[in-house]
Design a protein around this nucleic acid. Sequence first.
DNA 1: AGACTAACAGACAGGTCTGTCTACTAGAAG
DNA 2: CTTCTAGTAGACAGACCTGTCTGTTAGTCT
Lengths: 192, 192
Amino acid sequence: MARTPAGTARDRILDTAFRLFYAYGPRGVGVDTVIAESGVAKATLYKHFPRKDDLVLAYLDKVDQAWSGALRAAAAAAGDDPREQLVGMFDALGGACRREGYHGCAFINTAAESPAGSPVHARTVAHKNAVRAWVTDLARQAGAAEPELLARQLTLLLDGGLAGGVLDGDPTIADAAKRSAHALIDAALPER
Amino acid sequence: MARTPAGTARDRILDTAFRLFYAYGPRGVGVDTVIAESGVAKATLYKHFPRKDDLVLAYLDKVDQAWSGALRAAAAAAGDDPREQLVGMFDALGGACRREGYHGCAFINTAAESPAGSPVHARTVAHKNAVRAWVTDLARQAGAAEPELLARQLTLLLDGGLAGGVLDGDPTIADAAKRSAHALIDAALPER
DNA sequence: AGACTAACAGACAGGTCTGTCTACTAGAAG
DNA sequence: CTTCTAGTAGACAGACCTGTCTGTTAGTCT
């Protein structure tokens, strides 16, 4: 169809937006900058994403996939025991904090600059709920008496690590979060 | 001196900026809006705050005072025992989440829209370090073997609650954070 | 009374941002 | 060969944003 591989223009736009939006925040990056850096015509961008908000939402979806994938991968790497997986997922936090250009939680950062009822806000809530539902499931499999509470506690630690890690790229944060998770899980599942 | 009580213009500007910056983020509020809402002349604002950044920093200082005060008050309300104070400070989190117009941690939100080396960023780091130093002191008084670690863990919970609370004004978050704090403190200070 | 100070009122310049629009190019499909 | 599609290139309008500048008003101090 197109003279370039399918979807190339759209992908280039989205990749560029991902990089720039994460580094400077969506509001800190003009559409013109995305256009210049992705080597695309303005009309092309507005064809794929009629409003800038559409591009921001697509960016958040990309972040959601990446972060959910990282969490699942870290959990899977910890073995088959749900209890170990609950601890292991915190390695995703450590990996994120250590990554060059780490700038905190993209969802929290984006939601911070969006009004309360906006689509961006809703998408952020949906993402956090999805992650927490997955953790709740793991907690239930691990035999927690109150899986919702444990999941809330663990995602609280994740959010804290993600948000606070913006400030000092200190990997100590991830360690502290992991040790906290261990302690909370031990307290919730005393019998081994 | 002035035809109105000393510092009134400056105070009105700062109060208005506090309200608007917190609700929409500093970048989401124009200087003109602050001027209009505080009923002040443009020249007056620029006399007290030569750059918008100066106003943002003054705003952060105001937030720092408010939040540090709330934490200390909540801790003091829990009694004289440092151990109880460490748990009690989480009531400040609950109070913040329940407040109308709650929009997460002002520092994290503001830092999210500021480049890495900016004064805003530095001020945010300083604030978080000050809070953590205070918590570390409490942890040491409580007899923690590793006060730095415990403080890191507890401030992680605070940050997570503050940041995550933006999304669903769910006060469950504060409860979960407090119960986590209890469990972590019990694990760190087993002998009662 | 005269000088000074803090504030008010608002025009203005220069830049940036989003979103629209026109004109052109090249490959694919019929 | 014609038509359609996806894309390039860039001008443009209208809004908004920061920061400056001119002129005026009203209290206070000497």
